[in-house]
Design a binder for these strands. Structure first.
Length: 779
DNA sequence: TGGTAAGTAACCAAG
DNA sequence: TTACTTACCA
């Protein structure tokens, strides 16, 4: 066994050795937090704490696996008993055991976003609401917000007293929950919320887990939401040996409910909490770290910490300008090709990062053209592909025949003459008789309106019943005629054959169909891989595994390919060489964040940018294009404001228009605007604000600069912002359309507009631009 | 009921 | 650009 403290710096050692009681580790990017966590677990085991009593929650399954491996290497025994998992898998495990205590059955299904949306669509239809007004996506987003904050149906009802739209939402939420329960299914957010509910309703269950999980660690703590925080707070409530690791500067999941206050509240809930800061970065060169620091320091709501590094200075950060996205992709792919051809690097050392998944297509094209091996993370997940979801729906229905969404999905796939009208009639019958869709289909003879389709439906249900028998044989470990036991692979193959799903694709014989067949083969190998690597395989557990894999989980470290992913996906990863593409205002930072009057959005984008930059170890190339096709329309965006926040002395620019010549101009006016002749939204960036964007003046730096992406090239009339007339002052009460009432606690004058800080009664402190915020003074 | 053509809304990020 | 819904006919 190696010395657990060897090679750690003082802060790291302290964190590894501080085992009892609550501990908050503020770990900057690349400060070796995974190392600290693994060594800490090893140290605990060494000290005699049973691995069985330790839990570590990570962000992805991949991180969980890696952590276990690393602990294994250090302690050489027992690590397999440490419970390392994500929030979602941990909750599923708990629910799988105790779901019956809260009125579900233990063979429940897990609904992904697509399934949930279908269910909501049904609910909206059943309520006779206008589907155009109640879009599934929007509704699901709102329900998801509620669940992430543990807001129950009755609480929404309570809030909705005089608001009929909200009242409708409450009803949808209500019916959606009833439907989920009727289908014996949990959606992603339910997994957490219902587990919390279980803990609250069944203290004995909670206590059994408290007694088992005496030492709990949570990674990426800054991205936990209220529900997740409550989950761990309850678990750690008895022994209070809770260690959380996070970095407020890397909080990038506010959109799915992450609440940065969890870091602040930590000291509130765990009063005697110890705080340790890890501020030495081991990952990046000084130049890269400087770039990251100079961007993030423009955020004003952050915990005080300074990341420093002993690493070499390294090369300058490259900023590259392209005419369009194709040229950008060309630059990226040829740079990679060149480096590899000259033996300077391996493909695996490159990552291409972007803000939105849509950007991957063109990059992919160019990589393919140059025969560069690559892998795209995210976008269309393997398990979200149509053919895979179809087959999984069959399996789900066989495992849990109350799963109406699964029935609806595959009842006519492949086509067997049971059309929408028939399904609708069956659904009606089921809902009148308060039964599940599949049960309604089983008693199809009683449904007069379905006389025409009854034969076809019976054929379908007979087939499913047959599959169920096979599953029972598998569960009972019965032997086939050839003496071998029944397997899940057999069942899956049988489904593919009996339904004619495979045959249909073979007949089609198009590229697309063949691709789908390949995917199905891959699914089959995943089934058998699961069976062969699991002690007690079960269909439910397999389905659970596949519904919780994240995109990142499929990324392996030892394969030689370039990876492409969004910045969000890249969180927690590092690469020697990083290309950060599409650094344009309107794309990164996103259009939405620029337009939002609430500057918190921009701050979140800036943290995202910070995450992106700090992924790079040795080389960082930041790239932007002058024009870009968005939804078939050419946009002319200006260079990202975040690039402008990086000091010029650590930037080397390739192909950037006349940067060198214009440098004197820059010194004079301060800003890239002179260098880049196209700056589409230059209107607002004129005058003094140029200086502010370079960061010479700390008050002005806080001002977000607004520039609309223009559809015309060059110097089209930019978005005009007129300084708002404000009739309120610090200390006044004001009202905002979205946030309600609050007190003005600060007003800063800028060249174009006032920046107003308001402490709202319900949503807390917000900083906003006066002209956008339209604040009304309250007397 | 199922296939095709035309029309239109959508992309911000994820388990 | 692409993916999905709507309209129409066999």
């Amino acid at each position: 066994m190696q010395d657990i403290l060897e090679g750690l710096n003082n802060a790291q050692k302290e964190a590894v050795e501080y085992i009892e009681g609550p501990l908050l580790i503020l770990a900057g990017a690349g400060s070796g937090k995974t190392r600290v966590l693994t060594h800490r677990i090893a140290n605990m085991i060494n000290k005699g704490i049973r691995p069985y009593n330790i839990m570590a929650i990570t962000f992805t399954n991949k991180a969980a696996g890696e952590m276990r491996d690393r602990v294994d290497k250090i302690v050489e025994y027992g690590a397999e008993d440490v419970w390392v998992s994500t929030f979602h898998s941990a909750c599923v495990k708990i629910l799988r055991r105790y779901a019956d205590r809260i009125g579900y059955s233990n063979d429940f299904s897990i609904y992904d976003t697509e399934d949930s949306k279908r269910l909501i669509k049904n609910v909206v239809k059943d309520m006779n609401l206008d589907p155009k007004l109640y879009k599934e996506k929007v509704i699901l987003g709102k329900i998801s917000d509620f669940k992430n904050k543990l807001v129950t149906v009755s609480e929404v009802r309570e809030r909705a007293k005089s608001d009929y739209k909200l009242a409708n939402l409450a009803s949808i939420y209500d019916r959606y929950q009833v439907a989920l329960k009727g289908n014996n299914a949990f959606d992603f957010d339910d997994l957490i919320m219902r587990t919390v509910e279980l803990f609250v309703q069944c203290p004995d269950v909670l206590e059994s887990y408290q007694n088992r999980l005496r030492y709990i660690m949570v990674d990426e703590y800054q991205d936990t939401n209220v529900a997740q925080f409550t989950f761990i707070r309850l678990l750690a409530g008895k022994y209070k040996n809770l260690c959380v690791v996070g970095d407020d500067d890397q909080s990038i999941y506010k959109f799915r409910g992450a609440d940065i206050r969890n870091i602040l509240q930590f000291e509130k809930y765990f009063k005697e909490a110890k705080i340790i800061k890890l501020e030495q970065n081991y990952r990046s060169t000084k130049n890269i770290l400087n770039a990251a620091n100079s961007v993030i320091k423009n955020n004003y709501e952050r915990k005080d910490k300074t990341l420093w590094s002993d690493n070499e200075e390294g090369e300058k950060v490259v900023v590259h300008e392209s005419e369009d996205a194709y040229e950008e992709a060309e630059m990226v792919s040829s740079s990679i090709k060149e480096a590899v051809d000259y033996g300077k690097a391996d493909y695996s050392e490159f990552a291409i990062l972007y803000r939105t998944n849509a950007q991957s297509r063109i990059l992919e094209e160019k990589l393919m053209l140059k025969s560069i091996p690559y892998k795209i993370i995210g976008g269309q997940n393997f398990y979200q592909r149509r053919e895979i979801k179809d087959i999984l729906a069959y399996l789900r229905l066989v495992a849990n025949n109350t799963d109406d969404i699964a029935v609806e999905r595959i009842i006519n796939v492949p086509k067997r003459g049971i059309g929408d009208a028939s399904v609708e009639r069956a659904r009606e019958f089921a809902s009148i008789n308060k039964m599940n869709l599949y049960d309604a289909l089983l008693s199809v003879d009683e449904i007069e309106s379905l006389a025409r389709a009854s034969k076809k439906i019976a054929k379908f249900t007979n087939m499913i019943e047959e599959f169920k028998k096979d599953l029972a044989k598998f569960d009972n470990k019965e032997k086939k005629e050839d003496g071998n036991p029944y397997t899940l692979l057999d069942l899956t193959n049988k489904i593919l054959d009996e339904t004619g799903y495979r045959a249909e694709l073979i007949d089609e014989n198009t590229d697309e169909a063949n691709g789908r067949l390949e995917n199905i083969d891959e699914l089959l190998s995943k089934v058998s891989e699961y069976e062969n690597n699991t002690q007690e395989p079960s269909l439910a557990a397999f389905l659970e595994d596949v519904s919780l894999v994240s995109d990142i989980d499929n990324l392996s470290d030892d394969s030689s390919y370039v990876v492409l992913m969004t910045v969000h996906s890249a969180k927690g990863l590092e690469f020697p060489n990083v290309f950060l593409c599409g650094m344009e205002d309107g794309l990164f930072p996103s259009f939405m964040s620029i337009m939002d009057e609430d500057s918190n959005e921009i701050q979140e984008e800036r943290r995202l940018c910070y995450v992106a930059i700090t992924r790079a170890m040795k080389h960082l190339t930041i790239s932007y294009a002058k024009r870009r096709m968005v939804r078939g329309e050419t946009r002319y965006n200006s260079i990202s404001r975040f690039i402008k926040e990086i000091p010029l002395n650590i930037v080397s620019s390739k192909n950037v228009t006349d940067l060198k010549e214009k440098k004197p101009a820059f010194a004079k006016f301060g800003g890239y605007e002179g260098a880049f002749s196209y700056d589409g939204g230059s209107g607002y960036m004129g005058g003094k604000s140029k200086v502010s964007s370079r960061g010479g003046n700390s008050t002005m730096r806080k001002k977000p600069a607004y520039s609309m992406p223009s559809k015309k090239p060059a110097f089209g009339k930019a978005f005009e912002v007129t300084k708002a007339d404000i009739d309120y002052a610090v200390g006044d009460r004001v009202e905002h359309s979205k946030f309600g009432q609050g007190t003005v606690i600060g007003i800063e004058d800028g060249p174009r507009d006032y920046q107003v800080t308001v402490m709202f009664d319900t949503v807390g402190q917000k900083v906003m631009m006066a002209s956008f915020a339209k604040l009304e003074k309250v007397d």
